[in-house]
């Protein structure tokens, strides 16, 4: 862990409401370079919402997000709700946050290779040949090189998710955000995706992983956060809190998820 330079991502007191329902009630989190933070919580506890607030796919009602020390500037819109002050800044910061979705969300009309080079070429303006070279290396890493010319629909769910990880990695992000990357996969395909994420962790990637895979969280993450009804109910080193959960709710969660 490198604490001298600014945190890779620093989130302060995020609040988010949908209508009258407050889904996030002040959630803070800091990830330094190389941290792997796993986020657990039962369905509806606000995990996806939290992750989506980090790259402003969801606009928080209050709180701040800073990536590499740069705080995303917000202003108050006419309707009184906050909105990003500068969409260009948001777009730039999003390039530093690689997001992997539960349902892959690959661009279905493009081949795997086209998916992976799309944003490097058109957002980062990397020359096409260079982007392809980089993409080939990444696709090798996630075991999708042989499938590079396939359309997503011609590959399995596990392969699509590995391609989606490759797409995010191709932007060379500072932080990877995973939202239940294995939840929509058949059980026999979960392993291959978890292996890719584990390899990334071993390579020192900074990651926030929302997951239902308790075993995976325990083995791979450096820090675990348990979210309950929009608040962090318990957090700590996985070795400690899994062995000795201090709250009743986390204990219940663990016993029903093992």
């Amino acid at each position: 862990m490198d604490t001298a330079s600014p945190a890779a991502i620093d989130v302060e007191e995020i609040h988010k409401s949908f209508g009258n329902v407050e889904v996030l009630k002040g959630v803070s989190m800091t990830a330094h370079r190389g941290d792997v933070i796993s986020m657990l919580g039962s369905s509806g506890s606000g995990k996806s919402t939290f992750l989506r607030c980090l790259n402003l796919l969801e606009i928080p009602n209050a709180g701040t997000v800073a990536v590499n020390g740069e705080t995303i500037a917000m202003k108050t819109a006419k309707n009184g709700l906050p909105e990003p002050a500068d969409m260009k800044q948001v777009a730039r910061i999003r390039t530093k946050l690689g997001m992997v979705f539960q349902s892959f969300n690959l661009w279905s009309h493009m081949t795997i290779m086209e998916n992976v080079i799309e944003a490097p070429v058109h957002v980062l303006k990397i020359p096409r040949t260079e982007a392809i070279e980089r993409a080939e290396a990444i696709l090798h890493k996630v075991g999708m090189y042989e499938r590079r010319d396939y359309y997503p629909s011609h590959t399995s769910g596990g392969q699509q998710q590995r391609a989606a990880i490759a797409r995010a990695l191709a932007m060379e992000p500072d932080v990877m955000l995973f939202d239940e990357p294995t939840s929509s996969l058949d059980p026999e395909l979960v392993g291959e995706v978890l292996k890719v994420i584990r390899d990334l962790a071993d390579d020192g990637a900074t990651m926030i992983v929302v997951t239902h895979e308790v075993g995976f969280a325990r083995e791979v993450s450096s820090h675990t956060v348990f979210l309950h009804e929009g608040r962090i109910e318990e957090q700590g080193k996985p070795k400690e809190i899994f062995a000795n959960p201090s709250t009743q709710r986390f204990r219940q969660f663990l016993s029903s998820n093992l």
Binding site: N55, L57, M87, K88, V90, A91, R92, R94, T95, L97, G98, M99, F101, S103, F104, N105, L106, W107, S108, H109, E118, A119, H122, V123, L124, A164, R167, A168, M171
Partner: peptide
């Protein structure tokens, strides 16, 4: 156009014109 695919494009830093030109309109 599937929302998820638009969100994926946004998450990669596409917005405004680029997002429409590269993802939304082709789809």
């Amino acid at each position: 156009v599937p929302t998820g695919e638009i969100e994926a494009a946004k998450a990669c830093g596409m917005h405004g014109q680029l997002l429409y030109r590269r993802i939304v309109l082709p789809k």
